[in-house]
Amino acid sequence: KELVLVLYDYQEKSPREVTVKKGDILTLLNSTNKDWWKVEVDDRQGFIPAAYLKKL
């Protein structure tokens, strides 16, 4: 499984997104879309802008 580091706080703006904090380490589920990556946060799955994440 691939992990990503959150570079900036992000507040979800729709039900398909998730809220994260800078410094969080998340499981990356899908990065095929270059703009929005799907991650897992506390048993929730959702999207975050790829620019907010860095692969570890």
Rank of each mutant, 00 (worst) to 15 (best):
12 E>F: 12
21 K>T: 10
25 I>S: 02
40 E>A: 10
6 V>L: 02
18 V>L: 15
38 K>A: 10
17 E>G: 13
29 L>F: 04
35 D>S: 14
41 V>A: 11
32 T>R: 12
28 L>V: 06
35 D>N: 14
29 L>P: 00
35 D>Y: 15
4 V>M: 03
53 L>E: 00
47 F>P: 00
49 P>F: 04
11 Q>A: 11
45 Q>R: 11
47 F>H: 06
28 L>E: 01
17 E>R: 05
53 L>K: 00
27 T>Y: 13
35 D>T: 15
44 R>T: 06
25 I>W: 04
51 A>N: 13
36 W>N: 03
37 W>V: 02
27 T>L: 14
21 K>P: 01
51 A>Q: 11
22 K>G: 06
39 V>F: 01
47 F>Y: 15
25 I>Y: 04
7 L>K: 05
50 A>V: 07
51 A>V: 14
8 Y>K: 15
24 D>L: 09
37 W>A: 03
51 A>I: 13
37 W>I: 02
43 D>T: 12
36 W>C: 08
47 F>N: 04
1 K>F: 14
55 K>S: 06
13 K>E: 08
28 L>F: 03
9 D>W: 04
35 D>R: 15
30 N>M: 10
46 G>V: 14
6 V>Q: 00
33 N>S: 09
54 K>Y: 13
56 L>F: 09
11 Q>R: 12
28 L>A: 03
43 D>V: 09
6 V>C: 08
18 V>N: 02
38 K>H: 10
48 I>R: 01
21 K>M: 09
13 K>Q: 13
17 E>V: 04
54 K>I: 12
34 K>M: 11
41 V>C: 10
5 L>P: 00
55 K>W: 07
10 Y>W: 09
10 Y>D: 01
34 K>A: 14
31 S>R: 08
44 R>M: 07
56 L>R: 03
15 P>H: 10
15 P>Q: 10
37 W>Y: 05
5 L>Q: 08
1 K>I: 13
36 W>D: 02
20 V>L: 03
14 S>W: 07
40 E>T: 08
33 N>A: 09
21 K>R: 14
33 N>Y: 09
16 R>M: 13
53 L>H: 00
41 V>E: 02
27 T>V: 15
47 F>C: 11
11 Q>H: 14
51 A>C: 14
42 D>H: 13
3 L>R: 11
4 V>T: 03
